[in-house]
Amino acid sequence: MITKKDVEYIAGLARIHLQDQEIEKLTGNLEDILGYIEKLEKLDVSQVEPTSHALPVQNVFRDDVVRPSLSQSDALKNAPQQHNGAFKVPQVIE
Protein backbone atom coordinates (compact mmCIF):
# COMPACT_ATOMS: atom_id res chain seq x y z
CA MET A 1 0.00 0.00 0.00
CA ILE A 2 1.49 3.30 -1.16
CA THR A 3 0.47 6.37 0.82
CA LYS A 4 0.77 10.07 0.09
CA LYS A 5 3.50 10.18 2.72
CA ASP A 6 5.49 7.49 0.88
CA VAL A 7 5.25 9.49 -2.33
CA GLU A 8 6.45 12.65 -0.59
CA TYR A 9 9.36 10.73 0.92
CA ILE A 10 10.39 9.23 -2.48
CA ALA A 11 10.03 12.63 -4.14
CA GLY A 12 12.49 13.97 -1.59
CA LEU A 13 14.97 11.21 -2.42
CA ALA A 14 14.47 11.92 -6.15
CA ARG A 15 14.82 15.69 -5.57
CA ILE A 16 11.53 16.63 -7.21
CA HIS A 17 9.27 19.21 -5.59
CA LEU A 18 5.92 17.72 -6.58
CA GLN A 19 2.73 19.77 -6.52
CA ASP A 20 -0.18 18.50 -4.40
CA GLN A 21 -2.22 17.25 -7.35
CA GLU A 22 0.86 15.42 -8.72
CA ILE A 23 1.33 13.65 -5.39
CA GLU A 24 -2.31 12.59 -5.45
CA LYS A 25 -2.07 11.20 -8.98
CA LEU A 26 1.29 9.48 -8.47
CA THR A 27 0.05 7.75 -5.33
CA GLY A 28 -2.63 6.01 -7.39
CA ASN A 29 -0.28 5.32 -10.33
CA LEU A 30 2.44 3.78 -8.18
CA GLU A 31 -0.12 1.71 -6.30
CA ASP A 32 -1.42 0.30 -9.62
CA ILE A 33 2.01 -0.37 -11.11
CA LEU A 34 3.46 -1.94 -7.97
CA GLY A 35 0.31 -4.05 -7.71
CA TYR A 36 1.03 -5.38 -11.19
CA ILE A 37 4.70 -5.95 -10.37
CA GLU A 38 3.72 -8.07 -7.36
CA LYS A 39 3.32 -10.97 -9.78
CA LEU A 40 7.10 -11.45 -9.59
CA GLU A 41 6.61 -12.73 -6.05
CA LYS A 42 5.00 -15.87 -7.46
CA LEU A 43 8.38 -17.07 -8.75
CA ASP A 44 10.88 -18.95 -6.63
CA VAL A 45 14.18 -17.21 -7.35
CA SER A 46 16.09 -18.44 -4.30
CA GLN A 47 18.48 -20.46 -6.49
CA VAL A 48 18.82 -17.91 -9.32
CA GLU A 49 21.78 -15.60 -9.88
CA PRO A 50 20.88 -11.99 -10.74
CA THR A 51 21.66 -10.60 -14.22
CA SER A 52 22.92 -7.02 -14.25
CA HIS A 53 24.31 -7.24 -17.76
CA ALA A 54 23.06 -9.37 -20.65
CA LEU A 55 26.51 -10.29 -21.95
CA PRO A 56 29.43 -11.73 -19.97
CA VAL A 57 31.63 -8.62 -20.00
CA GLN A 58 33.69 -7.95 -16.91
CA ASN A 59 36.42 -5.57 -15.78
CA VAL A 60 36.81 -3.46 -18.89
CA PHE A 61 39.99 -1.48 -18.51
CA ARG A 62 41.76 1.00 -20.72
CA ASP A 63 45.39 2.03 -20.74
CA ASP A 64 46.14 4.72 -18.20
CA VAL A 65 47.26 7.36 -20.67
CA VAL A 66 46.35 11.00 -21.09
CA ARG A 67 43.91 11.54 -23.95
CA PRO A 68 42.29 14.65 -25.34
CA SER A 69 39.08 15.57 -23.54
CA LEU A 70 36.54 18.40 -23.52
CA SER A 71 38.05 21.83 -22.99
CA GLN A 72 36.94 23.83 -19.98
CA SER A 73 35.10 26.30 -22.18
CA ASP A 74 33.27 23.50 -24.05
CA ALA A 75 32.31 21.86 -20.76
CA LEU A 76 30.91 25.16 -19.49
CA LYS A 77 29.13 26.16 -22.68
CA ASN A 78 25.75 24.71 -21.66
CA ALA A 79 25.82 25.84 -18.04
CA PRO A 80 22.82 27.91 -16.90
CA GLN A 81 25.26 30.05 -14.87
CA GLN A 82 29.03 30.16 -14.71
CA HIS A 83 31.63 32.23 -12.89
CA ASN A 84 35.43 32.30 -13.19
CA GLY A 85 35.59 29.07 -15.19
CA ALA A 86 33.31 27.14 -12.82
CA PHE A 87 29.64 26.17 -12.63
CA LYS A 88 27.82 28.68 -10.47
CA VAL A 89 25.18 27.33 -8.06
CA PRO A 90 23.07 28.76 -5.24
CA GLN A 91 24.71 29.02 -1.84
CA VAL A 92 25.73 25.64 -0.39
CA ILE A 93 27.57 26.55 2.82
CA GLU A 94 26.25 29.06 5.37
Binding site: R15, I16, H17, Q19, N29, L30, I33, V89, P90, Q91
Partner: peptide, 24 residues
Amino acid sequence: PIIDMFEETRDAGFGAESKRRIML
Protein backbone atom coordinates in the same frame (compact mmCIF):
# COMPACT_ATOMS: atom_id res chain seq x y z
CA PRO B 1 18.97 27.17 -1.52
CA ILE B 2 20.71 24.55 -3.68
CA ILE B 3 18.32 21.69 -2.81
CA ASP B 4 15.36 23.95 -3.55
CA MET B 5 16.92 24.77 -6.95
CA PHE B 6 17.35 21.05 -7.76
CA GLU B 7 13.78 20.28 -6.74
CA GLU B 8 12.18 23.20 -8.58
CA THR B 9 14.23 22.52 -11.73
CA ARG B 10 13.26 18.86 -11.78
CA ASP B 11 9.59 19.59 -11.09
CA ALA B 12 9.41 22.17 -13.88
CA GLY B 13 11.63 20.28 -16.36
CA PHE B 14 10.29 16.72 -16.29
CA GLY B 15 6.94 15.69 -17.74
CA ALA B 16 4.45 13.42 -15.96
CA GLU B 17 5.77 10.09 -17.31
CA SER B 18 9.38 10.98 -16.51
CA LYS B 19 8.39 11.81 -12.96
CA ARG B 20 6.42 8.56 -12.70
CA ARG B 21 9.41 6.50 -13.81
CA ILE B 22 11.93 8.38 -11.67
CA MET B 23 9.64 7.87 -8.68
CA LEU B 24 9.13 4.16 -9.39
